[in-house]
């Protein structure tokens, strides 16, 4: 049981949690996201795309780490451009980067607590929020172990714990299931469904199976643009036996990509 803050009970005044129009983001000199239009609301959204499609760059831009090079981006009703004050958005943001660095000498509890502190949570609530986040990812038994002693899957879960510690309204997870064993992935899907009931969760992954199982919505990008958006059921219905893949969702994925590339090549 935790106290519900005034911020959480205020009515939302924005139509979309993520609203991008013609978004352009640079990765180095190259425009990795080039004219992307995207609208997402509450729920679990899976971000799929081949390697180099601009998924990670898009996630970084949504996490306010990279400034957009062009177009418009609005997160939770706040415009996110070069001059805007990003602090209100960042307070309600959870982000797990693809390669997340950490301080090896921190314990899980210290690390998640440090991130909660950086997210400017009220000091009195931090220990309880940390305990809750660590519990939710199933790391309670390892809460006081140093990060350098953890396995890859445990580190990934510690990363998820720091992302959800502030009960974010916008949660961005870049390849969260890397290194998780099959049972942990099932638990993680359960956690995703739970988180998606009242926040906007965007999960970037290359595992089509995770998306089909845990997401309410699928977003497919290629070469920095939105290719397709719809429910996992519709995605599965796109493919037939002639397409590459071991499951209906995978076949649907390759069908849409092939069709998109054929149209682009014309």
């Amino acid at each position: 049981m935790r106290a519900v803050s005034a911020v959480e009970t205020t009515a939302t005044t924005h139509a979309w949690a993520i609203h991008a129009e013609g978004l352009q983001v640079r990765a180095g000199r190259h425009l990795a996201v080039n004219g992307l239009d995207l609208t997402l609301t509450t729920g679990v959204h899976g971000l799929l795309g081949p390697n180099g499609a601009g998924k990670t760059t898009l996630m970084r831009a949504l996490a306010t780490v990279l400034a957009p090079a062009g177009g418009r981006l609005t997160l939770l009703g706040h415009p996110v451009d070069g001059r805007a004050d990003l602090r209100p958005v960042r307070r309600t943001l959870g982000y797990l980067p693809q390669h997340f660095g950490y301080y090896p000498r921190f314990t899980v509890r210290e690390f998640v607590g440090y991130m909660a502190w950086l997210k400017e949570m009220p000091k009195a609530g931090i220990p309880a929020a940390v305990q809750r986040a660590v519990d939710r990812v199933g790391l309670a038994a390892k809460a006081d172990a140093r990060l350098k002693t953890l396995s890859g899957g445990m580190l990934r879960r510690a990363g998820i714990a720091q992302a959800i510690v502030n009960d974010p309204r916008l949660l961005l997870l870049d390849e969260p299931t890397v290194g998780l064993d099959p049972e942990q992935r099932l638990d993680f899907r359960e956690l995703l469904r739970d988180l998606g009931t009242d926040s906007c969760v965007l999960v970037s992954t290359h595992l089509v199976e995770d998306v089909a199982a845990a997401c309410t919505d699928v977003v497919l990008v290629d070469e920095g643009r939105l290719v397709w958006q719809g429910s996992p059921e519709v995605l599965a219905a796109q493919g037939d036996q002639g397409h590459a893949g071991d499951s209906p969702a995978e076949r649907g994925y390759s069908a849409i990509l092939r069709q998109h590339r054929a149209e682009g090549g014309r």
């Binding site: 780490v65 960042r90 307070r91 982000y95 980067p97 660095g101 991130m115 400017e120």
Partner: peptide
């Protein structure tokens, strides 16, 4: 130099405060 820079860059304390 800071291994956790990407995590910290997405927090409200990032930038000037840090």
């Amino acid at each position: 130099v800071d291994p956790a820079w990407e995590l910290i860059a997405a927090t409200p304390a990032a930038g000037l405060t840090t």
